[in-house]
Structure formats: C-alpha cells, structure tokens
C-alpha cells in the first residue's frame, strides 16, 4: 500500500472521476461570479508577486530599496545576507532555530505517537478521560502559561536555555500532536495487527513492527506540522530567552527591528532576515504541500 492510500482515510477530498466536470456542476456564469473569479486571481497574483518582491529586495542595498521600492536587483548581491548573518546575529539564531525545531519536533512526535496509539486502541473510561484531558490543552492560549512557566523554569535554571525551550515546545505541542495522531491511528486498518497478534507478536511488537511502518505518512505529517509551528513560535521564545547567543530566529528578528529604532533603518538587512525566516517554510510547502494542507485542515489548526 502506498503512503497516499494510507493517508486517504484522513482525506475528505473526493476525487471527481475524470478531468471534466459535468455540466450540472458548473457554476452559473453570472457577473458577480466573474468578478469573484477575477478578484481571486488578482489576490493570487499579488501574493506571488509580494513573495517574489520580498526576495528580490533582499538583494538590493537599503538606499536603492528606499529610492525605488518597485525596482529589481541589478546584480546578485549577497551583502544584505552577509550583514544580517554577521551583524544581526542571524547566524547563531538560525542555528538555534534549526536545532530547536528539529530536536523538539522529533521528540514531540516520538513521545506523542505511542500515547496516541494507546488512546486509539484501548477503549475504556480511562482512555476516554485521557483523550479529553489532552484535548483540553488545545484551548489554552500561550499567554496563560507564560508567567508560571517562566517562574518554574527559572527555579531549575532552564530559562535562557535551549534545552528549556525544547522541553517547553514538546509539552505545549502534546495536545495537538496527540489529537492528530490518535485520529490517524484510528483510521488505520486493524486486520494486520490482529494477524500479527495471532502469529504471536507481542503488543509492543505489533505497534513497533506493524502499526508504525503503516503510519509513516501520518507521522511525517505530524512532524512537519510541528516543524512549522516551532520554527515560527515567537511569544514563548521571546519570554524564555534573554541572551543574544540563545535567540531563535523570530526573537533575533524582533531585536533586529528594535535596534533600527536607534541605528537607522537597514531595510536591506531586514529583508534578508525576512527571507531567512520565510524561505524554509516555502521549501517545505513546495515539497510537501498537499500533505500539509491535509494535515492542517484536518488536524485543525496549529
């Protein structure tokens, strides 16, 4: 079975047979509709143009950008990136972000997967209660736990510490990941597990050797969703990290913006910074787009 097939139970999208749409399905050609379509394509074009524009500006120096914001770069000048990388401390921040994102996302999925498996396969009062308990976290906004978390971590010297931040990300991501993976494990067929059990595989063995390989698609989706949310997370990182060499990218970007209040706007460097923040997301999206929209729209929200 291919991964696509396995992800299918999560997918509500019904593929229409064939490319052509039957006449009954075609919308009526009203003026309002035409305007809607035109407007929509305009939004699409503007969105793409804005992205291209942002990347293009990152290759121009500040004076050129301010003189003519509509201009295109005349040469491929990496000066902005070099400056952002060195002066703006983006090098360290990128490394911190990368490390935090990968480590916390891997651990989140590794810890949430067995838990979700258990919750999806054992059905009793306890697991129903536990599922509800995990879902509860989906509704708690980050600002609620901000201050107590800071106080707690400060007591054990984990503020201003990448390990502390990783731990926080893992804990905070549990509700969503458990929720998503539980739904996913439920959608997997039971027959193979039963067959394996009949052949004498232990309960852990069926999970490790049968279900996990089957669930690769869902687990990858969960992992990528965590990568995106941890890469972009700002409020907790801003609170928990204080020294420049610990900053993650969003925090470095904020501090770069705030420095400019005093040192004059370095729009070239700023655009380079924005590109460093956005580009990885774009790459992931182009690479795994379909899986992502499915996971996000079905897992419902970050």
């Amino acid at each position: 079975m291919s991964q696509d097939k396995l992800l299918a139970p999560l997918t509500p999208v019904r593929r229409r047979p064939g490319r052509g749409v039957s006449p009954a399905l075609r919308g009526e050609r009203s003026i309002l509709r035409g305007m809607g379509v035109a407007l929509l394509w305009m939004v699409v074009v503007i969105s793409i143009a804005a992205l291209v524009w942002m990347v293009a500006q990152a290759f121009r120096d500040t004076r050129a950008i301010l003189d003519d914001p509509w201009g295109v770069p005349t040469s491929l000048d990496f000066g902005n990136f070099v400056r952002a990388w060195t002066v703006g401390d983006f090098a360290v921040a990128t490394w911190n972000s990368l490390l935090t994102t990968v480590v916390s996302s891997v651990l989140t999925v590794a810890i949430a997967a067995p838990c979700s498996y258990y919750l999806s396969r054992v059905d009793n009062k306890l697991t129903q209660g536990l599922s509800l308990y995990f879902i509860l976290g989906l509704g708690i906004p980050a600002q609620v736990i901000l201050i107590p978390l800071f106080v707690m971590l400060n007591k054990v010297y984990l503020t201003d510490n990448i390990i502390g931040l990783n731990l926080v990300y893992i804990g905070v991501s549990m509700p969503f990941t458990v929720f998503l993976l539980t739904a996913f494990f439920r959608s997997l067929p039971l027959e193979m597990e039963e067959a394996a059990a009949l052949d004498g595989t232990t309960a852990f063995g069926t999970f490790w050797r049968i279900t996990l390989p089957l669930a690769k698609g869902g687990i990858l989706t969960a992992f990528i969703l965590q990568v995106i949310s941890h890469w972009n997370e700002t409020l907790l990182a801003l609170t928990l990290l204080q020294s420049t060499e610990k900053y993650t990218l969003p925090v470095a970007l904020i501090s770069f913006v705030q420095q400019q209040t005093y040192s004059g706007a370095d729009w070239g460097g700023l655009f380079a910074g924005l590109v460093i923040v956005v580009l990885p997301m774009l790459i992931i999206y182009v690479w795994l787009g379909r899986r992502l929209t499915e996971g996000l729209t079905l897992g419902m929200g970050k």
């Binding site: 810890i111 949430a112 067995p114 838990c115 498996y117 258990y118 919750l119 396969r121 054992v122 306890l126 536990l130 308990y133 995990f134 509860l136 976290g137 708690i140 609620v144 736990i145 201050i147 107590p148 978390l149 106080v151 707690m152 731990l167 926080v168 893992i170 804990g171 905070v172 549990m174 509700p175 458990v178 309960a203 852990f204 999970f207």
Partner: peptide
Amino acid sequence: RKKLLIPFVGPAFVLYTVLFIVPALGA
C-alpha cells in the same frame, strides 16, 4: 496492550502535565 499504559502514555502525560497543565493552574 493495556499493560503498555505507563510506558506509552506516561511520558506524554508527564510532559504535558508538568509543562502545560501545571502552569495553567499556576496562572
């Protein structure tokens, strides 16, 4: 399977409780 409760659910439960629910109550 039921015996797997502690090893499977335990870590997620502890991390989530300590780093999310306890701070929320602390708030």
